[in-house]
Design a protein around this nucleic acid. Sequence first.
DNA 1: GCCAACGTTGGC
DNA 2: GCCAACGTTGGC
Length: 141
Amino acid sequence: MAYWLIKSEPDAYSWDDLVAAGDEGTLWDGVRNHQAKNYLKAMNKGDKAFYYHSREGLEIVGIAEVIREAYPDPTAEEGSPWVCCDFRAATAFKTPVTMKAAKADPKLKDMVLVNNSRLSVQPVTEAEWEHVCALGGVKAR
DNA sequence: GCCAACGTTGGC
DNA sequence: GCCAACGTTGGC
């Protein structure tokens, strides 16, 4: 089991949209960054990912689950290296964890979110996972 | 193969 | 809306 963090601008696709998509979930397409792509390819079915709202909200609002492993991104050109995964909403945070809180927390100072906010798919360590879950008011697993 | 110019992302 | 950080492009 690995842990991740995926970001979306709520204008484009919000947590509520993911919840509304139900168990079918949605495809996570449009990634055009090689680092992010490599993380997508490393994901396994059942992996969990924090769902972060960028630009508007600036907070982790819940946990999504990988329901389909990397496959060619249908929005990309034929033969291009880009991939997407499918996610569904797993658990909503009782209390969203804001960027501000993450920055202020010494336990999260090494989080990719804090140090490289531009990367749209990020790995999360187990320690970070458990801490953020505690802050969010949900069980880590 | 270097690096300046440019475009995009995303926190502030 | 601004601008810093980062990635990509293209001239040399």
